[in-house]
């Protein structure tokens, strides 16, 4: 995560950031406080409500299917588990 800090001559003009979405280099997964979401794939109906409610864009969806979580970014807020209409997501304690 630790990127080399650039000197003033190396920075783009006008203090802009020219790499869209570069925050993906900044991992927020270690913000979780002892619990993480886990998906029960058997129950999941792929309604994608978890996906539309995730503040951290941390739900993996591909080919219309809920595939799990980006644990590198998931902050463990628990909204997905709270909102899943059929209880297919559970917040479980994380081992260190």
């Amino acid at each position: 995560m630790a990127e080399k800090k650039r000197g003033w001559k190396e920075l783009p003009i006008g203090a802009i950031i020219d790499e869209a979405g570069s925050s993906e280099k900044f991992k927020t997964g270690d913000w979780r406080e002892g619990r993480k979401p886990v998906l029960n794939k058997d129950k999941c109906t792929n309604c994608l409500l978890c996906w539309i409610f995730c503040p951290d864009s941390a739900i993996i969806v591909s080919n219309n299917e809920m595939k799990g979580f980006k644990y590198d970014y998931c902050k463990g807020c628990g909204i997905c588990a709270n909102q899943c209409p059929i209880g297919a997501i559970e917040m479980v304690p994380e081992e260190e």
Binding site: K5, W8, L11, I13, G14, A15, I16, A20
Partner: peptide, 24 residues
């Protein structure tokens, strides 16, 4: 097609460098 971010937030680690560039 080439999205940029203009006017971001600097912490202590970059503000000075940005101001140095402006001064230059």
């Amino acid at each position: 097609d080439n999205p940029i971010t203009v006017g971001p937030l600097d912490l202590q680690d970059y503000y000075f460098e940005h101001k140095r560039g402006e001064a230059e």
